[in-house]
Structure formats: structure tokens, C-alpha cells
Amino acid sequence: MNRRKFIAGTTAASFATVTFANSTIKKDLKKEKRYQNGQSPWPICLDTATIRTAKSLEEKVDIAIAAGYDAIEPWDNELEEYEKNGGDLKELGKKIRRAGLFVPSMIGLWGCLPENEEAFQASLPATKNRMRMAADIGCTHIQAIPNKVGEDYDVKFVASCYRRLLEIGLKEYNIIPALVFVKMFPLKTMGQAVAVALDADHPMAKIIPDVYHMYISEGGFEGLKLLNGNLFAIFQFNDAPKGIQLQDMKDKHRVYPGDGMLPLAEILKDLKASGFDGCISLELYNPEYHKQDLLQVAKTGLRKTLEVITEAGV
């Protein structure tokens, strides 16, 4: 083969390779999974606190299914009561999956991050039982709740406890503990939760942001731009009401997404840019909603969540 033919052949082959690569990239981009008939880049989850006054865990599951959610996030006391009344969590998990839903997280590991080693060891039996229940129903994550860390908590010690919880969860129950932050607890802000997660020095360390506590803890939302979405297990979603002073806001004041004053569309744009691909979980504690038809509450929450996602253009 002469030089001209060789160069021509090589150029054509290279062009074909580049063209193929580009078409593959475009094809992969089109493959991004969408949920809710293409309206959302994230599965939408119903935190059962939103419909807390339903009679049973099974009724809450039925409401999540009927309302059209992709997932459900239960609480530990609900699972405990379900078993106490003779229910089989593994069978309930199968029912959830047969309906096309999944369980991304359970709330939660109360008292799992205490002030000292003696208290940590004493907390493990209850912690392991909660992990076992969460694993039985098919959870991916379980929330590690810092309600007992103490006002002057030691970040190094809390991080060591969290790392050990990760090891126990993964090795014994195939479940990932994820750290939450709550204004009413000593570990209040997303920044504080990130510090513990990073100092745990574990590849599966994760946190669970909640837009309401990001706001009322005064930690703010700008940190989302600085974090990789792989750090987030799920993302809890709601809105803060208008007409109430920040210092007076309690969990009971949460309102439907879009009905309040938080910059939710901008928050979701930053969340999408972070690469987060987990669940958006609707978490409301509003007693006024609990007095209403709970299926309609669930449907309204889903609709309003999707409206904000549409507004964000993600």
C-alpha cells in the first residue's frame, strides 16, 4: 500500500471511529433514566410522616402505590408495630417491589451516635435490630440520627462511631447508614454532617440533606454547588411557609413544595448539577394535612413536587 492510500484509509477509519464514538455518546445521553412518565430525573419517594395518621404501615404502602410514587420511606416504629401485629416485613417488601416501588431509606437509627464509647456499645442492640428490620423490607439506606451526640460533641469520636455503623450495616445487613442533620439536635447543619462523613474516612459515607433543615439551621443552600451528588443518599423535600419568622419555624410548619418561600427550583438545578441520582423524598409533618384525605395529600404532594421539578427545567 502506498503512503497516500495508507493515510486516506487511516483518516477514514479514524473518522468512522470518532463518528461512532460521538453517536455512542449521544445515544448514552439519551439513555438517562427518567421517572414519572419522563417528568423527573429522580424517583419520587413518599416519606410516611407525610401521611402519619394512616391506620397502618400497609395502608401507607397502599397510599404510596395508589398515588403513583416510585418509592416509600417508612419509620422504624411503623416496622416494629407491623411485626408486633404479626406482619412479615420481607413479604411486605415483596409487595412493594411487585407494585413497582422500592424502599430507599428508613428513619432511623435513634441514639446511634452518643456521647461516649460506653453509650455507643449500649446502643448497638437496638441499632442492629433497626438495621435488621430495614434490611427485611428491602431498604438501601438507613438514617443515622445524631440526637444523642451531645452539645459539645467530638467530631472525631462521632466520625469513628459513624464509620463503625457503616461497617456493621454493610457487612451484617447489606444496608448503608446515612447521616442526617436536624436544627433541633446538636448536629444541625449540612456542613457539620459533611465534616463527620468526611472524617469517617469510608467510601460509602453519605448524608441526607433536607431543604427545610438546610434553611432553618441557617446553613443555607450554596454548599450544594460544592458537593458531589454521590455523597447524598436521598434528598428530603418540602417547603418553608411564608409569614413565620425563621426562629419560630418547627417541623409541623412544613408545607407542600412550591407553597412556601424556599428557592426550590434553584436548589434542584444545583442538585442535578451535582450528579445526584437518588430519590427526592417528600417529607411533611403538617398536622393540617393529617386531618385531610391522606390519598389526596399524597397525590397533591407528588403533583406539587413535579411542578417544581418542571420549573427547574432539569
Rank of each mutant, 00 (worst) to 15 (best):
M214K: 07
N238I: 03
M261S: 12
F276D: 06
L231H: 04
D270A: 13
L262D: 11
V211Y: 08
F221V: 05
D201P: 02
K206H: 12
A205Q: 02
E218H: 07
D259E: 15
F237W: 14
K272D: 09
L246S: 06
I244N: 04
I244R: 11
M214H: 06
N228Y: 10
L227Y: 09
E218D: 11
G191T: 04
F221T: 08
V255N: 05
P203T: 14
I208E: 09
K250T: 13
M249H: 07
F237V: 05
L224V: 06
P209A: 09
D210C: 03
T189P: 01
I207W: 02
A233V: 02
E218M: 08
G229S: 01
F232E: 03
S281E: 14
A193N: 02
A195H: 06
M249A: 08
G223D: 03
G229M: 01
I216R: 15
M249W: 07
P203S: 08
I244K: 14
Q192W: 00
L231P: 00
A200F: 01
M204V: 05
I267H: 08
D201I: 01
D201H: 12
G223N: 14
F232C: 02
S281L: 04
N230G: 12
H253A: 03
G191Q: 06
L227V: 04
D277Y: 14
P203F: 11
L227M: 14
L198C: 00
G278T: 09
D201M: 07
N230K: 14
D210N: 14
I244C: 04
Y285D: 00
D259Q: 11
V255S: 06
I244F: 07
A240M: 08
L264F: 06
D251R: 14
Y215K: 13
S274Y: 10
K206M: 05
Y212C: 04
K252G: 10
E283H: 07
G275I: 12
D210E: 12
G275W: 15
Q192V: 00
V194C: 00
Y256C: 03
L231G: 02
D251E: 11
D251L: 03
A233Y: 00
H202K: 08
H253R: 04
G260Y: 13
A197D: 01
G278Q: 08
K206I: 01
D251K: 11
E218K: 13
G278H: 12
M214E: 13
A205W: 03
V255I: 15
G223I: 14
L264D: 00
